[in-house]
Design a protein around this nucleic acid. Structure first.
Lengths: 343, 343
DNA sequence: TCAATTAATGCAACCGATTACATAAAATTT
DNA sequence: AAATTTTATGTAATCGGTTGCATTAATTGA
C-alpha cells in the first residue's frame, strides 16, 4: 500500500461491484444488508486496509462523537482518577475525549471553553477553576443545546446537572473527628470560599464546632491558593498563634503534607501537639509521617457517573435536566496524624 | 439564535452578497482578499456567531490537525509535566491532542495505537509501556508516513526520533554519589530491564560500582513493577540480606518513598543505616522524611521538544528523520536521604 | 401462475469548507 | 487610448461518508 493513498468505501464498492451506499450500510451493520454481502464487505475492507474517515462521517451527521473535559489541573490523584472514569465510559460508548485544563485560571478556562465549543464537542464535563465567578463562557453551549455536566467544583444555584460529594458533611465529620480526639482549637486551611467545595467544607467545619460548643474566631480560618508556599505560610502563621491550635482540618492532602513538614521542622509533634486531617486521599498521605487522616472520595466513580449521564442524555436514553444533583459517597479514613486516643 | 441551526460560510456569503470562496479566503487571511471585504466578512461572522466546521475543513484537506499522545500512565509528576509541555506547543500551533494511556499494558497500548491510527492523527508522540516488546503496532503509521516521536521510554535501535535523558549517566552519578557517601553495598531497585530507561540506569549503576572497585552480586538487583506492594517487598527483602545494604538506588520516587517507609518501620535510620537515592523528582520527595535525593529531569522540556520536532516536521520546516536522538539535561538533586557526610 | 409483500440494493443529494482555474475590475505601462 | 499587469472575486469540483427515496429481486399468498 502506497503511503498517502487512502481506501474509501468507493474503493470497496468498486472491487465488489456494489454501490457505496451498500458498503456504508454493511459497515454499520444495517439490517437491510444481507449477511453474505456484509461479510464480503468486511473482508474486502480488511484486505484493503480500510479505515473510516471520521471527518466525513461527522460532517454528514453533524455530530462529532467527541466530549470535552474541562478541568483545573491534571496533577492530582483525584483528577486523574476522574479522568480515568470518564475515559472508561466514553471509550466504551465510542466517544473521543478532548481534555483541556485551565491551570486554575478563569481566563484560561473561558478560552478553553471557547475552543471546545468551536471544536463542536457533543457534550462537556467540567470542574471550575478557583477564581471562576461567571459562567458566561458556558452560555454558547446552552444556546446550542450542548449538554453540560459539572463535577466536584460546581455552581449549584444554576440549573446544571452536577456530580458532587456532600462537602458539608465531609467537613463536619472531619471536624467532629478532631473534636472527638480532644482538640479544642481547630484551624481550617482552605481555598477560595467562592468555590462550592470549599464553602461547603467550611460550613461543615463551622457547624461541627458549633454543635460541640466550641467557639470560632476569624483567625481560625486560613484561606490561600493551596500551593506549597501557601502551605508553609499557613503553618508559620499557626505557630505564631496564642494559644496554638491543637487541630487542623486542611482541604487538600498536599497542603496538609507541606504544613506537617513545616510544623515538624519547628519541633511540634503530630498528632500529640497538633492533630491533622486532610482531604482527597492522595497517595502522598500514606507515605508521610505520621500517615495522614483524610477524606476519601472516589474520583473514578464521579468520572463514570458524569460521563454516563452525559452519554445517556446524548443517546436519548435519559434526560440530563431531570437528574439535577448526584451525590457520590465519601468517607473519613483515619490514620495516625489525628489519632490521639486509642481506637 | 435557534439551537441546532449552524451558521456556515454560505450564510455569510449570502448576507454579504459575495461568494463562499471569498468568505473562506477572507477568514483565512488570504492576501488576495481586500482589507475592506475581509473586515465585512469578519464582522458578519461575529454577528451571526459563525464557527468553523473543522470536520468539513479536515475532510477537504485530508489532515486532521490532531496529534496523538500515547503514554503508560497519567499519574506521575513526570508524565503530567510532559503533557503540559506537549500541550503548550501543540495549542500554540493550532493542533488538537488525543491522549491515550495504556496502563502499562502492551495490549492496551496496541489497541490505543490502532484507535489513534483510525482517528488519523497527523503525528504521534509515544512512551512505551513496561512490557511492550514489539513495535509492530506502530507500523501502520510508518506505512502511511505519519511521523512518530518517542520520548523517555523508547526503542533506540529502530530508526525513530527519540527524546530522552542520558539514563546511563544518571544511573552513574546517582550511584557514584552513594559511593562518595561511603556506601559499600548498594542495591538497585528498578523495573523491567527490557525498557531502555531501566536498562541504561542499571548500566550506569554497574559501571559506577565497577569504576570504584565495588563488586556486584545478583542479589543487589531487584526488578519489579514499581507498585506500592513491590516497594514494600523490596524493602523486606533488603532487610533480610546479610550483610544489609547501606545504600539503595531506586528508579522512581514513589517506590523510594514506600521503601523508606517500610525500612523506617523496621527501625532503620535513613541515611545513617541506609542511604537512598530516587529518580524523577516527584513532589513527594520533598515531603517525606528525610527528604529524598533524586534525579531531576524536565518533563516539560521533553514534552515541548518532542512536540516541537513533530510539528516542525509536519509543517515541513525540518525533517524528523535527520535528528535522531535528542538528549535533554538532567541532574542529581541532593537531599537528606543520602547525606551521610557534611557537604 | 400472477399479484402482493418483503428483503436487498442502488441513486443521488447532502454535510461545509477548500482551492485550481477562470474572469472581471482596477491600476499601470506604453 | 489601448495593451498589459495586478488585484479581487467567482465558479465549480472535491474530500468521503450517510440516508431518504426509488428500484429490483426474492418470497409469500391466493
Amino acid at each position: 500500500m502506497k503511503p498517502g493513498k487512502e481506501v474509501t468505501i468507493y474503493d470497496i464498492a468498486k472491487k465488489l461491484n456494489i454501490s457505496p451506499a451498500t458498503v456504508s450500510r454493511g459497515l454499520q451493520d444495517n439490517p437491510a444488508i444481507s449477511k453474505k454481502t456484509r461479510k464480503r464487505i468486511f473482508d474486502m475492507a480488511d484486505e484493503l486496509g480500510y479505515r473510516t474517515n471520521h471527518y466525513a462521517r461527522n460532517l454528514r451527521q453533524s455530530q462529532t462523537n467527541t466530549i470535552g473535559v474541562l478541568v483545573h489541573e491534571l496533577n492530582s490523584n483525584f483528577i486523574t482518577s476522574v479522568l480515568a472514569g470518564i475515559e472508561k465510559v466514553t471509550t466504551e460508548a465510542g466517544y473521543d475525549l478532548l481534555i483541556a485544563h485551565s491551570s486554575e485560571s478563569a481566563v484560561k478556562e473561558a478560552a478553553n471553553a471557547r475552543n471546545l465549543f468551536h471544536k463542536r464537542v457533543d457534550g462537556l464535563i467540567a470542574s471550575l477553576a478557583f477564581d471562576t465567578t461567571s459562567l458566561d463562557h458556558f452560555k454558547p453551549f446552552k444556546e446550542k443545546g450542548v449538554p453540560l455536566v459539572f463535577f466536584d467544583r460546581v455552581e449549584q444555584d444554576a440549573d446544571n446537572t452536577v456530580v458532587i460529594i456532600d462537602n458539608a458533611k465531609c467537613g463536619y465529620i472531619a471536624t467532629q473527628h478532631l473534636i472527638e480526639q480532644g482538640c479544642k482549637k481547630i484551624v481550617h486551611v482552605t481555598a477560595s470560599l467562592k468555590r462550592n467545595v470549599y464553602a461547603q467544607r467550611y460550613k461543615g467545619f463551622r457547624d461541627a464546632l458549633h454543635d460541640h460548643g466550641l467557639k470560632f474566631e476569624e483567625s481560625q480560618l486560613i484561606v490561600n491558593d493551596l500551593s506549597e508556599k501557601a502551605g508553609v505560610e499557613a503553618a508559620l502563621r499557626m505557630l505564631k498563634m496564642k494559644p496554638m491550635p491543637d487541630g487542623i482540618f486542611i482541604t487538600n492532602d498536599f497542603v496538609s503534607a507541606v504544613c506537617m513538614r513545616t510544623l515538624k521542622e519547628n519541633g511540634l509533634r503530630i498528632p500529640q501537639d497538633i492533630a491533622v486531617v486532610g482531604f482527597n486521599n492522595d497517595a502522598i498521605g500514606n507515605l508521610i509521617e505520621p500517615a495522614l487522616t483524610t477524606i476519601n472520595y472516589p474520583g473514578i466513580d464521579m468520572g463514570e457517573i458524569a460521563a454516563r449521564n452525559l452519554i445517556n442524555h446524548l443517546k436519548g436514553i435519559s434526560d440530563i435536566h431531570q437528574t439535577n444533583t448526584i451525590i457520590v459517597r465519601s468517607e473519613l479514613i483515619i490514620r495516625k496524624s489525628s489519632l490521639r486516643k486509642p481506637v
